[in-house]
Design a protein around this nucleic acid. Structure first.
Lengths: 189, 189
DNA sequence: TTTTTTTCTTAAACTAGATTAAGTTTTTTG
DNA sequence: CAAAAAACTTAATCTAGTTTAAGAAAAAAA
């Protein structure tokens, strides 16, 4: 049931069978079809989501009405609007399935309990957030040093398989430009 | 000696006197005068820095030779080039004191040991990286939804004291525009 | 397989912000 | 305090990327 998560946790710390069983009482599986919403703006973000299979995206709608994708999560990544999740206040974001997606959910009401009952998960989530922060540092560097075209070429080189998985307009906003400009870049080559 | 750090850790977890003493053997204090470098591009980032007093900034030099400030750290924040720190490979970044600054240093050779000897710090750093990730989510949202002028006005509203502490050209690059454009914005009002 | 919806493309007009360059003000240092 | 260095301003010119709008292609649904 939670195999994918157990395996991922075991990369960083080792849980016993009993601990696996205890963890199973605090999480739950869920399945979403393409375009389904796990969170909508105005709602409070109830959970932190671990992607077992598929792809989720976090986005908001800007003043001009355009969707701005700020994060993707594929297999073995966590995603949430942390500010809403931690404070339990309404979110400005949407979390949507970019593909048919299976997740493991930790609800906010179990989040503190999780660490009390399974202190080993402190290390696991320390590593998860450490990686997320590292990814942010790298992303900010790219945003501040590369042109739109360079970011697209670079992203394509680094994640060629991923680029095939999502529509170009999602990718364009994630990389910080318009879909029309992405078409222009692609037409050049 | 390490009072500021002990207090900060105690916001999230409680260390005993013995644990404080053990921690003291794994960290060290240091003091840097304005403009001193804690890290220079080409060097490997040796430590994670906790700011007791003052202000550090993380920046790199782009292709055009301009400094791009990607992060600031003031009192009670941690700063490092995580990628270089964790992999112990050369960095593209500089870490520089923006003011006379006092820090507490965790060197990489003590980083794993720290968590082995003081497992309570897993929770502390889980919270630290959680906060850093939360800050990144907010920052990316601002970068993707606001104009340069809006980002400046907003940042000024949120951190009016901080704006006074650093030269405008550092702030301009942190907010993602040129110092000349910042002058233009300021002239308007 | 036809229809509908979603995604992608093209091109002309436009603009937020960059660049360049010179001068001014403020801060630091000897 | 004088001189040098660092930080800030102004303004003209320029450009990377946006906007608008319409049509084409691909994917999903019926």
């Amino acid at each position: 049931m939670y195999h994918a998560l157990y395996n991922h946790i075991d990369r960083f710390t080792n849980l016993s069978i009993e601990e696996h069983e205890l963890l199973a009482t605090l999480v739950q599986p869920a399945s979403y079809k393409k375009k389904a919403y796990l969170l909508e703006a105005g709602q409070t973000c109830r959970a932190n989501y671990f992607v077992v299979k598929g792809c989720l995206r976090l986005y908001f709608i800007d003043i001009k009405g355009a969707e701005q994708t700020t994060q993707f999560a594929i297999e073995n990544w966590w995603i949430s609007d942390l500010t809403s999740f931690l404070s339990q206040r309404p979110s400005d974001f949407y979390i949507q399935a970019a593909e048919q997606t299976e997740v493991i959910i930790i609800e906010q009401r179990h989040y503190d309990e999780l660490f009390l009952k399974l202190p080993k998960l402190e290390k696991y989530f320390r590593m998860i957030f450490q990686k997320l922060h590292q990814a942010s540092q790298i992303r900010i560097k790219y945003l501040y040093s590369q042109t739109a075209e360079e970011r697209y070429i670079n992203f394509n080189k680094l994640f060629p398989e991923f680029v095939q998985r999502v529509p170009q307009y999602m990718l364009a906003s994630y990389l910080g430009f318009t879909p029309e400009f992405l078409s222009k870049i692609r037409a050049k080559k």
